[in-house]
Design a protein around this nucleic acid. Structure first.
Lengths: 234, 234
DNA sequence: ACAAAAGTGTTGGCCCTACACCCATGC
DNA sequence: GCATGGGTGTAGGGCCAACACTTTTGT
């Protein structure tokens, strides 16, 4: 970056840096996205991702976590930067670059009141409304990356409650990949990874017989990763 | 983004947005990175990626391509955004977020004079010097993504001259994956993809017998992608 | 007793890996 | 004629996909 460039930059108007959060959840067998009704002009009343300007004294990731917490009350959530969107005319109001970050949350953990205050709503991933600006594009890109990453990281577990059944896990993966999976093969595969701990309880909410509950074993997952992972689901 | 946030933002000092280019090339069987001697204070004389502030009237991608062209004279180059780096203290001078973008260039195409004017040098990827700020981190992250993407996109071809031999292609993939590949299996795999066109010429620069030259067939690649790609090299 | 979801094994095909020798040519 | 890299085929194993029936239990 030359001195010339720097001067040119400084005489012009301001560059804004924002971050937008793509918040995924999972509920009733569907992958969902948390969408917000915009409170300020322009585009007031339109559906939108939730975002904020990045503060000068704030790390980029911290800004994402702050936004997420303000909206849902949640902390210590799986969050990952997607990429930045920087078309010069992407926002009619400002010259604004947005860093998109996506989060996976356990949908029954979040603070429902807080979410309501923000005028937010969960939408099924394949029935999203029209969002402002390039937000639909962001979600689309995030979904692609989610599918990719789900192949070699156990991110699926971030979206389920601590205890879950194998059929539940399967339905989640089916929602992410948007296709059906074979129950026998799926069970075989995930159990062969040795990262699930079978519990003595059953969940009887979905069948008379009941399905055994499992929980994720993070230590085994770490060991698996180190010893040359062949971790890959579906 | 609330009004409160916006005001808070505006009373503070400026946020800068830069882009840094990770320029990969391939030469003499080695994957290389183009590194620049920094011309301005602070950190003048240190090795660095080349970058620039993003102009207010300029798309993010355009900024990356501009920087690349200023440094190498090249246009129409494969370029991809990596991600943004936004630790609040990552640059001691400014509060600056940098969007890292990487490019793959054919190393014999670039404008050598231009590069020399910038005080630039090609370094082998596993003998990089210490770079300023978080630039080594950027390169590290870019390499990981390069390996990933090389598995399902034929990016390797961007790094070779238009006509190349199969052994050359193999050496390139070995450089990217940093491990040796089996020559028979490699040849079988890439030929089975049907994206290489065998030419009638041979390259005799590396052996008496000579190796047949091939070129990449973009149409076949497009068809392959659409018809459910099982495209995966190494 | 029946409905509804949970759970369980085997087989065939494909792809990947490993591996050793002949070919063409310049010197 | 020999040294150097280019080019070729096969066999075994592992992994994945496809597939149907029994178990449990609430009603």
């Amino acid at each position: 970056m030359t001195e010339v460039t720097k001067d040119l930059y400084q005489v012009k108007e301001k560059m804004y840096v924002a971050t937008d959060c793509i918040i995924f959840g999972f509920h009733e067998g569907k992958l969902k996205l948390l969408v917000f009704k915009r409170r300020v002009e322009p585009l007031k009343g339109e559906w939108s991702l939730i975002g904020s300007f990045v503060r000068l004294d704030e790390d980029l990731e911290v800004a994402g976590k702050r936004v997420l917490k303000e909206a849902t009350g949640l902390e210590n959530v799986y969050m990952q930067q997607l990429r930045s969107y920087g078309k010069k005319d992407r926002d009619p109001g400002y010259r604004c670059i947005s860093v998109a970050q996506y989060a996976l949350i356990r949908i029954d953990d979040y603070d429902e009141k807080l979410v309501e205050e923000h005028g937010a709503k969960w939408f099924e991933i394949d029935h999203l409304p029209l969002l402002i600006l390039d937000h639909n594009r962001m979600v689309h890109d995030a979904l692609i990356q989610l599918k990719q990453i789900a192949r070699y990281k156990p991110i699926g577990f971030e979206l389920l409650p601590e205890k879950f059944t194998i059929p539940q896990l399967q339905i989640l993966y089916e929602a992410i990949y948007q296709r059906e999976l074979d129950a026998r093969n799926f069970r075989k595969k995930v159990l062969s990874l040795n990262v699930l701990e079978k519990l003595d309880e059953k969940d009887k909410s979905t069948s008379k017989r009941g399905a055994f509950l499992y929980k994720f074993n993070y230590e085994n997952y770490q060991r698996l990763l180190k010893s040359g992972y062949n971790f890959e689901i579906a």
